[in-house]
Design a binder for these strands. Sequence first.
DNA 1: GGATGGTGCTACGGAAAACGTAGCATCCCG
DNA 2: CGGGATGCTACGTTTTCCGTAGCACCATCC
Lengths: 89, 89
Amino acid sequence: MVLLDLLGRRWALRIVWELRGDALTFRALREACGDVSPSVLNTRLKELRDSDLVTLDEAEGYVLTPLGRELLERFLPLVDWAERWAKRG
Amino acid sequence: MVLLDLLGRRWALRIVWELRGDALTFRALREACGDVSPSVLNTRLKELRDSDLVTLDEAEGYVLTPLGRELLERFLPLVDWAERWAKRG
DNA sequence: GGATGGTGCTACGGAAAACGTAGCATCCCG
DNA sequence: CGGGATGCTACGTTTTCCGTAGCACCATCC
């Protein structure tokens, strides 16, 4: 499970999640993640870009690649479940 | 996404993944995760137990709870995809 | 033309997390 | 009384992360 190496790091999954909608600038992404420090954010973005999950559109900002969108799609069932889990007794 | 707080930590996802099959003892789980340090493993296990995802069966060892199995199930599409992703050009 | 505000990104010191090794207490089996 | 399991803790080192400040660049505005 090489994927776990990548996603099992702080903010990695969160970044993908925050990019589920429209493109976000570096600063906007930072805010969306609750003001992560830019150094860490940049490190994660490098890893995600090297993994072809995220790319930087010069005009719009950071976006998921088609591959990233595939990942997100497979991730949605989890999100659904997570909400019910969070409300457990 | 409270779930990301839990799973977005080192070894958290990995532990759930390694428990996909039969129960594992503390030490076996440690080996399965590539010899994580026991302190971290124990910290994660506490978190996962507090979250009702993992439990310690006195006879067998660490096992996923029904809730944990649900999580794993939703996680499987990702695993499938991850293998193809890992082999990308 | 220079001020203002946006962009992505880096540097650096301190705090927190993870690591690695050793070992404790307990139980079971011979 | 060993010997070998079990879950788990302690502690010193290393790695990672955080928080703040700031750089270089570009567009807009007056």
